[in-house]
């Protein structure tokens, strides 16, 4: 069994508005940071996650490659998914054992278009997209289903948002958002504006390394003890929206039990409740100390950042066993769970 660890993580100071940088310009500093942190300028494998539609043109990943310094040519691939899945692809490559280091990055801006509306076009093109249900409306359907089944109340959603925002204010990379307003109206009931992840531009990069190479590159590598991802069926009408079967499966296979900290890619308050239940996270688990996606949600990077944040707590010695989670698709359709541990030997 090849031991693979997160040995470096960097993210941008995320912004709620366009900061006047191209995606490539936004990405370059985080790649430079992980290169500096590891002392590596070349990696055995490189993989990224991005979305053409966020930029309104094809081939977002082509110009992003300029930030890597891909000369001489590099072994490289790309997923049209959150970069957490790029990390998964890199993990598989390292597990295969031909190379021992990998660079993973993701980037995206939600300042350039209305992402909730954009994601209508991610839905079934025959039965769903023509009706135009935006991302928030569908999420609210899931929230309603969860509240009805679990007995959780809208106040529980507010509590998630309040805790996330408070934590985010302590995170220099997150947006610093006010406490939920007492009189906030619904955006789409039962969700209020604070239950919805904010518009964010940002990027992140991670370096993975295997075996002794990881120990050389990092004082306290965050070893990946389990990683798994699963999909649910697409249509909200053919699955139990009140829970996440795919997250449960991924958590079970990745070994979610017994983590001290969990960074969950919950883009809506109720998603945290669904994910806690699916992953079996008790009250004693510290959830989203970074503020989570409710404090900064750069598309295509936010899932990778959850893994990075979980790893960072192991790098710093703050946690021994941590979980990073990423989600993708409407209503938590796909879920990835990565369990990390320090001090393996």
């Amino acid at each position: 069994m090849t031991d693979i660890a997160v040995v470096a993580f960097a993210q941008t100071t995320h912004t709620a508005e366009n900061a006047g940088l191209s995606e490539t310009e936004m990405l370059l500093p985080v790649i430079q940071q992980v290169k500096a942190a590891t002392g590596l300028n070349r990696f055995g494998f490189t993989c990224s996650g991005s979305c053409d539609y966020l930029e309104g043109a094809p081939f977002a990943f082509v110009s992003a490659l300029d930030a890597v310094g891909a000369w001489p040519p590099i072994a490289e691939s790309h997923v049209e998914m959150d970069a957490a899945w790029a990390l998964y692809e890199a993990w598989v490559e390292l597990k295969h054992g031909v190379v021992d280091t990998a660079l993973v990055y993701g980037f995206g801006k939600s300042s350039q278009t209305d992402v909730a509306e954009l994601l209508v076009q991610q839905l079934d093109p025959y039965y769903l997209a023509p009706l135009g249900p935006d991302q928030v409306s569908l999420a609210a359907l899931q929230a309603r289903a969860h509240l009805d089944r679990s007995g959780a109340k809208e106040d529980d959603l507010r509590a998630v948002a309040a805790r996330s925002r408070a934590a985010g204010r302590d995170n220099p990379y997150a947006l610093h958002l006010d406490d939920p307003a007492a009189d906030a109206g619904y955006e789409v009931a039962p969700l209020r504006p604070h239950d919805v992840a904010p518009r964010t531009d940002g990027a992140a990069a991670i370096v993975l390394a295997s075996g002794d190479r990881a120990r050389e590159l990092c004082e306290r590598p965050a070893w990946i003890t389990g990683i798994d991802h699963r999909a649910d069926a697409h249509s909200p009408g053919v699955r139990d929206l009140s829970r996440s079967e795919s997250a449960r499966l991924a958590g079970e296979r990745a070994g979610a039990a017994g983590v001290e900290v969990a960074e969950l890619h919950a883009q809506f308050s109720h998603e945290e409740l669904i994910l806690r239940e699916a992953l079996g996270l008790g009250e004693d688990v510290l959830v989203n100390p970074s503020g989570g996606a409710l404090s900064a949600n750069p598309p295509m990077a936010a899932g990778l950042i959850r893994i990075g944040e979980a790893a960072a707590r192991i790098h710093s010695g703050a946690a021994r066993r941590a979980l990073g989670h990423a989600s993708f698709g409407p209503c938590l359709q796909q879920n990835l769970v990565c369990v990390l541990e320090g001090d393996r030997r």
């Binding site: 979305c51 053409d52 539609y53 094809p58 049209e80 998914m81 954009l118 994601l119 076009q121 991610q122 839905l123 079934d124 093109p125 997209a129 999909a231 649910d232 069926a233 697409h234 249509s235 053919v238 993708f328 698709g329 409407p330 359709q333 796909q334």
Partner: peptide, 14 residues
Amino acid sequence: LFEGVIMPETYLAD
């Protein structure tokens, strides 16, 4: 952009 469905594999999962 060919089909105008963003990440159509999510719809194709099942």
